[in-house]
């Protein structure tokens, strides 16, 4: 097993851990953390698979896509966080109403 496959498998693991946390945690900031970890897992799989070119080095196209993805992820995270802050200011909870015990 070479390094590329190893990192691709780590990416799969990160995606699975993130999905688990996304489902079990009610706090919305934890859900945002989970989505970010899932995204990192996807990026890792994408670039690790692009690494299989051998001597040619890592394929530049997936690398550029991951850089784009990182910037889009930070934009989405910032917008999601401000939504949570506003929700908490309105309701006093940082969870969705279905996950709340009144």
């Amino acid at each position: 097993m070479n390094a590329a496959v190893l990192y691709a498998l780590v990416g799969v693991g990160l995606y699975s851990l993130g999905l688990y946390a996304l489902i079990v945690h009610a706090h919305l900031v934890r859900k945002i953390l989970a989505i970010n970890v899932m995204g990192s897992g996807v990026f890792l799989v994408l670039v690790a698979l692009a690494r299989r070119g051998g001597e040619a080095g890592t394929d530049a196209v997936p690398q550029a896509m991951v850089i784009t993805g990182i910037v889009v992820a930070v934009s989405a995270t910032a917008l999601a966080l401000i939504l949570v802050v506003k929700l908490a200011a309105e309701t006093g909870y940082a969870t969705l109403s279905g996950n709340r015990q009144e």
């Binding site: 970010n36 690790a48 080095g57 991951v66 850089i67 992820a73 930070v74 966080l81």
Partner: peptide
């Protein structure tokens, strides 16, 4: 993985700016 361009972006954005945004929130 020989992707220093992504490494720079990840260190500055993924760890730095996202972390600052999370702590601020």
């Amino acid at each position: 993985m020989d992707a220093p361009d992504i490494a720079l972006a990840e260190a500055a954005i993924g760890a730095g700016v996202t972390g600052a945004l999370l702590l601020g929130a």
